[in-house]
Amino acid sequence: MIAEQTKAPAFTLPDSAGKQISLSDFAGKKVLIIFYPGDDTPVCTAQLCDYRNNVLEFTKRDIVVLGISSDSQASHKSFAERNKLPFSLLSDTEKSVAKAYDALGFLGMSQRAYVLVDENGVVLLAYSDFLPIIYQPMKDLLAKIDAA
């Protein structure tokens, strides 16, 4: 994973509607980047729905949430609509952002990884789940965010 206390790599990726979203769009805000292996997989669906159900916890902490995987915009759109996800899903089809954040697993898929970027673009927290079949439950994720 990317080292904590380093400058977060800049990126621009399309969201599910095709709008280009850049990390710099959120200057002055905290951003939680959630790398995940893929749309419509059981664990990723459970994970992102857990975060959806508790999105007010991110809002209370003034944190913008961005989900990133290598899935297409069309896949993200369907996945987000079906699950009523209130945060942007970004399409990293070339895996360039996952590479920049050192969030690629050994099979070339995105790890289940979390990066919290502060208001100045510095990485406050960066880690990945050891097993891809397990995700960070909301209470554990918030504990790590609050401690950062």
Rank of each mutant, 00 (worst) to 15 (best):
M1P: 09
Q5V: 05
Q5P: 04
T6W: 02
T12S: 01
L13W: 04
A17H: 15
A17E: 14
G18W: 07
G18A: 09
G18N: 06
L23R: 01
L32D: 09
L32R: 05
L32W: 08
I33Y: 02
F35T: 08
D39R: 11
P42C: 05
V43T: 04
Q47W: 00
Q47C: 06
Y51A: 00
N53W: 06
N53D: 15
F58W: 13
T59N: 12
T59G: 06
R61W: 07
R61P: 05
L66M: 08
L66T: 07
G67K: 01
S70F: 14
Q73I: 12
A74L: 13
A74V: 11
K77G: 08
S78R: 15
S78A: 14
S78V: 13
S78D: 14
A80T: 11
R82I: 14
N83Y: 11
N83F: 09
K84Q: 14
K84N: 15
P86Y: 13
S88T: 10
L89I: 11
L89Y: 06
S91I: 10
D92N: 12
K95I: 06
K95M: 09
K95D: 03
S96H: 08
V97N: 01
A98P: 10
A100F: 05
F106I: 14
G108W: 09
G108S: 09
M109R: 13
Q111R: 14
R112I: 00
V115N: 03
L116Y: 06
L116I: 06
V117N: 04
D118H: 06
V122G: 04
L125Y: 02
P132A: 08
I133T: 13
Q136A: 11
P137H: 02
K139Q: 03
L142T: 03
A143Q: 14
A143E: 13
I145G: 02
A147N: 10
